[in-house]
């Protein structure tokens, strides 16, 4: 589904990703872990199409297409969802209008007629329940005045609404209390299926108490330096990132 080959990218002239390779197949859940500054968020930015990260070389193919050539909106319409580390507040734009527009843009892309008002309301209600999102929040402006936890839940809510093929969750667990973490993890688990895939980018192991990954990768200094099964996360938890750093830097 997604194939990253020797991806190199820089920000403000500084090379951050120094050759990342990764393959994600449908039905899989990958966790990318790593210490601060290892390039996790830059990887997420490149995959989502943010302009501040400049790709210098390498390839990313998504469902056989060159991902790096696609606009951010086309990536979304083709089924990629990025959960933001810091969701943006947009005063004056209501959640309802935002989601309705997004859902309809997706439908238009697939050649479908706009969703009816009643179907849309029904869909909103179902998805809100799924992520235990307070009903009052969807009648407000996008993320405006939401608490940190509410913003993250809102990301998962949007993910549920758009039903992505590939979800990339960038530090969705950071700043969450245990209840919010459980809700977010629950949402991710419920949305997981044999036809889609998820990449969870995280600094901490604790999210992986609730989401069981098929693969764990350690990103360090712009490269994936270790890949293994879920047991790697536990090893990181007990030994810390210094273990990896020493191993790599010592080579």
């Amino acid at each position: 589904m997604l194939k990253i080959e020797n991806l190199k990218a820089e920000i403000d002239g500084k090379m951050i990703l120094k050759g990342v390779s990764l393959e994600v197949k449908k039905g899989e859940l990958h966790a990318i872990m790593g210490p601060n500054g290892s390039g996790k968020s830059t990887l997420a930015a490149v995959l989502a199409g943010r302009e501040f990260a400049e790709v210098k070389s390498g390839r990313v193919t998504y469902q056989g297409n060159d991902l790096l050539e696609m606009s951010p909106e086309d990536r979304s319409r083709k089924g990629i969802f990025l959960g933001f580390q810091y969701p943006i507040e947009i005063p004056g734009v209501s959640m309802v209008n935002f989601m309705k527009t997004a859902v309809n843009e997706h439908r238009k892309y697939r050649g479908l007629a706009p969703i009816t008002a009643s179907d849309f309301l029904k869909m909103m209600r179902e998805k809100k329940e799924l992520v235990e999102l307070d009903s009052a929040l969807t009648s407000r402006a996008v993320n405006e005045g939401f608490s940190g936890g509410e913003k993250k839940r809102n990301e998962i809510f949007q993910m549920a609404m758009l039903e992505p093929t590939l979800a990339i969750l960038d530090e969705t667990d950071s700043g969450l209390d245990i209840d919010a973490l459980r809700v977010v993890a629950n949402g991710v688990n419920k949305l997981k299926g044999p036809e889609n895939a998820t990449i969870v980018i995280t600094h901490y192991q604790r999210l992986l108490d609730y989401i069981v990954p098929d693969f764990v990768h350690v990103l360090y200094d712009g490269r994936i330096v270790k890949s293994a099964g879920k047991e790697l996360a536990l090893e990181l938890e007990s030994k810390g990132y210094d273990w990896i750093k020493n191993e790599i830097d010592g080579e």
Partner: peptide, 27 residues
Amino acid sequence: EALFYLRSRGISAVEARLMLMFGFAHE
């Protein structure tokens, strides 16, 4: 940032700009 956020949900750049302008005016 807001423009990118809207686009990352599949909303075209033109429509996203429109939504932001409208949101701004709505107050």
